[in-house]
């Protein structure tokens, strides 16, 4: 059995030659874990806990998104955690100066895995209109960004659109980040 390649094993299964094979060997690979991943990702997408990382005017819109008119609680993520250790989503809302960059990276490092980043607004995404030495030209130079969001500042609707896109991405994502 050991010298059989996986292709040979599949062939053996198809032609019914190895009825005595252990059941997990006969299973198409990853059926169980796929279902687990689906469930876990559903749960992850349903209860994201954002860290408060408001840096500029985008933060005002981020707060408005949490307010009753737009009500982020509908997506299970109304609690903006003040501690990065309790958060798994960082919404970088606003321009990141060179001086703020190490702080941002540290907060990201302190967040618990699995974690995601939304780059909210043009300043966070690419520097926006601040094409100068003081502003980091896109936070993806510091942290891996999952969703980019345009607008200056984006409306709460746009932020919710980005969040829904992230939910989609999480649901389709792997169980464990490689």
């Amino acid at each position: 059995m050991g010298e059989h390649s996986s292709a040979a094993r599949v062939e053996a299964r198809v032609f019914g030659e190895s009825e005595l094979m252990p059941i997990d060997e006969n299973m198409p690979s990853g059926v169980l874990l796929t279902q687990v991943a689906k469930f876990v990702n559903w749960a992850r997408a349903g209860s994201l806990w954002p860290a408060t990382f408001g840096l500029a005017c985008c933060a005002i819109e981020m707060m408005a998104t949490g307010a009753p008119t737009h009500d982020l609680a509908r997506f299970g993520m109304e609690v903006f955690r003040a501690s990065p250790r309790q958060a798994d989503l960082m919404i970088v809302a606003g321009r990141v100066s060179q001086k703020m960059a190490p702080v941002l990276r540290q907060i990201y490092d302190q967040m618990a895995e699995p974690k995601w980043v939304i780059s909210m607004g043009v300043c966070a995404s690419a520097g926006g209109m601040f094409n100068n030495y003081a502003i980091v030209q896109g936070v993806d130079q510091l942290v891996p960004v999952d969703v980019y969001l345009g607008g200056c500042p984006p409306r709460p609707e746009q932020l919710m659109d980005a969040i829904l896109l992230l939910h989609d991405k999480i649901r389709k994502g792997p169980l464990v980040k490689s």
Partner: peptide
């Protein structure tokens, strides 16, 4: 229309 959102630059 104002939703300009993406996962890539």
């Amino acid at each position: 229309e104002d939703e300009v959102t993406s996962t890539t630059r």
